[in-house]
Design a protein around this nucleic acid. Structure first.
Length: 583
RNA sequence: GGGCUGGUAGCUCAGUUAGGCAGAGCGACGGACUCUUAAUCCGUCGGUCGGGGGUUCAAGUCCCUCCCAGCCCGCCA
C-alpha cells in the first residue's frame, strides 16, 4: 500500500498550493435550491446512452468535462470486514471505464481509497483471515475488539495478528481481491492522507467556512445545528473519533481545535466518550463522511466515481453540492450502481452469506468473473454460485461473439467487440473452451489422460490442437470440479478408487458378470450402453436397477454420468474387475 | 408518508437511445439411439413485457395512474 498517493506530489498543481488560497471567496451558486443539477444526476446509466457498453458511455461523459491527464477514477470501501463480491463493484466498475479511456489514448490512474479512518461502530460477526477463510467473532479475541469500539480501524490491533492494524488487515484483503481480478489499482489509505497532511488544507478551508458548510449540508440533512462542526477530532485520551458537536473552539492560525470527548451514536447504541478535554491538530481527526468524500475528490483530483445505490440519494447529492457550493469545484462524473445478490439473497456479512472474489476464482476463470462486471450496473443482478455454469456458458458465447462473426445476436457481438479485449487484457488466439458442465463430468476422475481422451471423444478438442492449447482447455476441469464439490450438485461424483462394499441380488450379480464379458471384448461406449439394457432384459431385471448397481460400484452413488461412454474410457481391466466386484 | 431505481418465458438475462413481427441461453418435454440415466446434436413447448388507462396507423419502448421489490429521506459510511 502506498501511504501517500504518488500522483499528489507529481501533479502540476499540487493540492497543497491550491488550498486554501485558490478557493474562491464567493462561490457561484446558480441554483436557488439544494436540488441536484442535471449534471450531477447520479443515474448516469438511465436513459439514452451514447455507446453499446456502459463503460464507453461513462468514458464519454468524463471526456466531456475536458479533464487533464492523468484522468483519475476512484472507488472506496471502509475496511470494516469481509470484502465481498458486491464490494468489488467499487474497483471493477471503475476499471472498465479506465480501460475505455485508455483505449482513447488517455493516461488514467485508478485509485482505491481504503476508508480506514472510519471508526469501528459495532462488532462484525464474521471476519476473514488473509487466506480468505471466514471465521466467527468467537475465533478471535472478541474482547479486545470490543474495547476498541469507536476507534479508527487503523488504530485497532489486527485480530488475526498478522497486519499492522484491523484496517490494514482488511485493506490487504481488498487489495488481494483486486489482484485476483487482475485489476491494477493504487490503494490510498485515508488515515495516511490525514497523517501526511494531505487533507490539512481542505480541512482548514472547511473549518474557515464552516458556516457555509453547515448551510449547504443543512439542505440535505435536518440535524445540522449550531454546534455542528465539520471536523471530528480523535480523543487523545481514549482514541475515539468524537462527534461533530465535540469541537469547542477553532484556531485556524495554529491549526488546532479544542474539543470535549463526547458520546457517539452508533446505530441503536451509544459509544461513550471519556469526557477528556483536549486540543487536536487538523491531522488528528476526521472529516465527517459527507465532507470527507468531497475532500478526497479534491485532494486526489477525481474525475469519475462509481458508488452503490445507497449513496445515490444521500451522500452523493450532498457531496456534489458541497463540492460546488463550498469548495467551488466540479464534482466527478458519478455513476450509481445497483447491488448484487448472492444466490437470490442479499450479501450479509453477519449471516455469513458472502463470497469473496478470491473464493469465486476457485471455480470461475478470472475472465468469466470479469465478464460478470461488464454487465449493466444499473440493474440489480444475482450472482449465482449454484448456477455458475450458466454464467460460464454465457461468457463462452460472448467470447465466440468476439472471435466468430455473427455467431450470435448483433447486440452481443457489438458489446463483445468492445468489452472482450478489456476482459482478457491481451487478445490472443481463440481459446478452446470445454462446456463447463462437461468439464465437471471430466472432474469425476483425476486421471489426466482419461480426461483428455473423453474430451477428444466428445469432439471438444480439435485434432490439430496444440499440446499447450489442450492443456489450457483442460484447466477448466479443476474449476468445474471445485464448483461441483462446493455446491454438491449433480456433477459431484468421484470415481471410487476402491470397490465400495456393496451387496447385490444374484440376478444383478449375474448381469454384472455378463456385462464384464462384453467390456472385455473391447466394446465401444455405445455398445456398453446398449448392453446394459440388453443384459437387464435377459436377466429379467429393470435397466434402472442395473444402472443403479453400476453407479454404486463405480461412484458409490445411486446416479451418475451416462454410464456406457464413461466406462468405455476407463482402463478396461479395471472396469472388468470392478464389474466382477473384484477390485 | 415523500423521493429515487428496478420489474420482459419456470430460471438468468438481452431488447427501451431513435415507437415498427416478443428474443437468447439454461431448464422442461420429445427425438437422434431395440436404450428414462445428467455428455453431444436436433426439435418442440413456453409470454397479461408487474396491473390498468391514454397518445399513435403502430407501444416492452412515449404519457398518466396503481401494485411489488430495493435504496434514500435519523446517525454512520
Amino acid at each position: 500500500m502506498v501511504l501517500i498517493p504518488s500522483g499528489s506530489s507529481a501533479r502540476s498543481t499540487p493540492a497543497t498550493t491550491r488550498v486554501p488560497t485558490s478557493f474562491p471567496k464567493e462561490v457561484p451558486t446558480n441554483r436557488p435550491t439544494g436540488r441536484a443539477m442535471t449534471e450531477d444526476d447520479p443515474y448516469t446509466l438511465s436513459g439514452p446512452q451514447s455507446h453499446d457498453l456502459w463503460a464507453e458511455s461513462m468514458a464519454e461523459l468524463v471526456l466531456e468535462r475536458d479533464p487533464e491527464d492523468p484522468i483519475v477514477t476512484k472507488g472506496g470501501i471502509s475496511p470494516s470486514g469481509v470484502p465481498h463480491l458486491g464490494n468489488m463493484n467499487e474497483i471493477a466498475r471503475g476499471y472498465f471505464v479506465a480501460r475505455a479511456l485508455r483505449d482513447r489514448g488517455r493516461a488514467v490512474k485508478q485509485i482505491f481509497t481504503a476508508d480506514d479512518r472510519d471508526p469501528l461502530r459495532k462488532l462484525p460477526r464474521k471476519l476473514a483471515g488473509l487466506d480468505g477463510s471466514i471465521v466467527g467473532l468467537g475465533d478471535v479475541d472478541a474482547g479486545a475488539l470490543g474495547r476498541n469500539l469507536g476507534k479508527p480501524y487503523t488504530s485497532i490491533p489486527d485480530p488475526f495478528g498478522c497486519c499492522d492494524s484491523y484496517g490494514a488487515h482488511f485493506s490487504t484483503l481488498i487489495e488481494r481481491s483486486a489482484d485476483a481480478l487482475e485489476i491494477p489499482v493504487e490503494t490510498v489509505s485515508n488515515t495516511a492522507l490525514y497523517e501526511s497532511g494531505a487533507f490539512e488544507d481542505v480541512t482548514r478551508y472547511l473549518l474557515a467556512h464552516r458556516e457555509q458548510a453547515r448551510e449547504v449540508l443543512g439542505e440535505h440533512q435536518e440535524k445540522v445545528d449550531e454546534e455542528y462542526v465539520p471536523f471530528r477530532p480523535i480523543c487523545a485520551e481514549c482514541g475515539h473519533v468524537t462527534e461533530t458537536n465535540s469541537v469547542r473552539s477553532v484556531d485556524l492560525d495554529a491549526g488546532t481545535v479544542e474539543y470535549v470527548c463526547t458520546d457517539v451514536e452508533a446505530g441503536d447504541r451509544i459509544i461513550e466518550g471519556c469526557g477528556h478535554e483536549g486540543r487536536a491538530t487538523l491531522r488528528e481527526g476526521k472529516l465527517p463522511w459527507r465532507f470527507e468524500w468531497p475532500a478526497q475528490w479534491h485532494v486526489l483530483d477525481v474525475d469519475f466515481e462509481p458508488f452503490g445505490k445507497d449513496h445515490a440519494e444521500g451522500s452523493w447529492p450532498s457531496g456534489a453540492d458541497i463540492t460546488r457550493q463550498v469548495l467551488g469545484e466540479v464534482p466527478p462524473v458519478p455513476m450509481a450502481y445497483e447491488w448484487f445478490t448472492l444466490d437470490g439473497a442479499p450479501f450479509s456479512s453477519s449471516a455469513g452469506h458472502v463470497v469473496m472474489a478470491q473464493d469465486v476464482l476457485e471455480f470461475l476463470e478470472p475472465e468469466v468473473l470479469r465478464y460478470f462486471f461488464t454487465k449493466d450496473p444499473s440493474k440489480a443482478r444475482d450472482f449465482s454460485i449454484e448456477r455458475a455454469d450458466q454464467l460460464v456458458d454465457e461468457f463462452d458465447e460472448f467470447e465466440r461473439g468476439y472471435f466468430e462473426e455473427s455467431v450470435t445476436s448483433h447486440e452481443t457481438t457489438r458489446e463483445a467487440n468492445t468489452a472482450y479485449p478489456a476482459i482478457v487484457d491481451s487478445v490472443s488466439e481463440q481459446p478452446i473452451r470445454l462446456p463447463y458442465t462437461f468439464a465437471a463430468v471430466l472432474g469425476m476422475t483425476d486421471d489426466a489422460t482419461l480426461r483428455e481422451a473423453m474430451a477428444r471423444r466428445e469432439g471438444h478438442l480439435p485434432e490439430n490442437a496444440s499440446d499447450r492449447a489442450i492443456e489450457r482447455a483442460l484447466e477448466r476441469v479443476e474449476y468445474a470440479r471445485t464448483w461441483a464439490e462446493r455446491t454438491d450438485n449433480a456433477y459431484n461424483y468421484r470415481l471410487a478408487a476402491e470397490c465400495p462394499a456393496v451387496e447385490f441380488d444374484s440376478d444383478i450379480e449375474a448381469a454384472l458378470d455378463d456385462l464384464a464379458s462384453v467390456v472385455e471384448r473391447e466394446a465401444s461406449g455405445e455398445e456398453i450402453q446398449s448392453e446394459i439394457f440388453e443384459t437387464a432384459r435377459e436377466h429379467d431385471i429393470s435397466p434402472g436397477d442395473l444402472f443403479t448397481a453400476g453407479y454404486r460400484l463405480f461412484f458409490g452413488t445411486e446416479q451418475g454420468p451416462k454410464l456406457g461412454p464413461f466406462l468405455a474410457e476407463l482402463d478396461r481391466e479395471f472396469v472388468v474387475k470392478r464389474l466382477r466386484r473384484e477390485a
